[in-house]
């Protein structure tokens, strides 16, 4: 069983919570915890190409997601139903190293972690 699953459910344009969730993943990895990131609901926008940061008060997070691999977070889990509900598909994901999960796989991922942080 892995230590922490961080579920990030907010878009990068909606506020700072997406960035603060990502910072938590980096902190966990820095402190040698086995930590995973699941993008769900509006959070799936984090893995898509940015719309243009000049229109947003918040920084582009997609580059930060690609840094996760350097911290031992090898894959970013994406809730496939959340993508579908927003008319998105896997080809529109700009971040590498993503794994799409159906409903059953998402439930299994949650069961496989001792703690869940929900952002």
């Amino acid at each position: 069983m892995r230590d922490i699953l961080c579920i990030s459910r907010h878009s990068p344009q909606s506020g700072l919570l997406a960035k603060e969730a990502l910072d938590t993943v980096l902190a966990g990895a820095t402190f040698d915890q086995s930590i995973s990131l699941l993008l769900m609901d509006e959070g799936v926008w984090q893995a898509c190409a940015p719309l243009g940061t000049e229109l947003s008060a918040f920084k582009d997070l997609s580059k930060n997601l690609n840094v996760l691999a350097l911290y031992g977070v090898d894959t970013i889990y994406i809730h496939a139903n959340s993508l579908k509900a927003r008319g998105l598909n896997a080809h529109e994901l700009s971040s590498g190293n993503t794994t799409l999960l159906d409903q059953a796989d998402t439930q299994a991922l949650m069961r496989d972690h001792q703690h869940i942080f929900s952002f």
């Binding site: 910072d23 902190a27 915890q33 703690h115 869940i116």
Partner: peptide
């Protein structure tokens, strides 16, 4: 944030 990670490692449950 290390304080959150450390506390979680020493807790049965972390609730957000």
């Amino acid at each position: 944030l290390g304080q959150l990670i450390e506390a979680t490692a020493h807790s049965d449950r972390t609730i957000t």
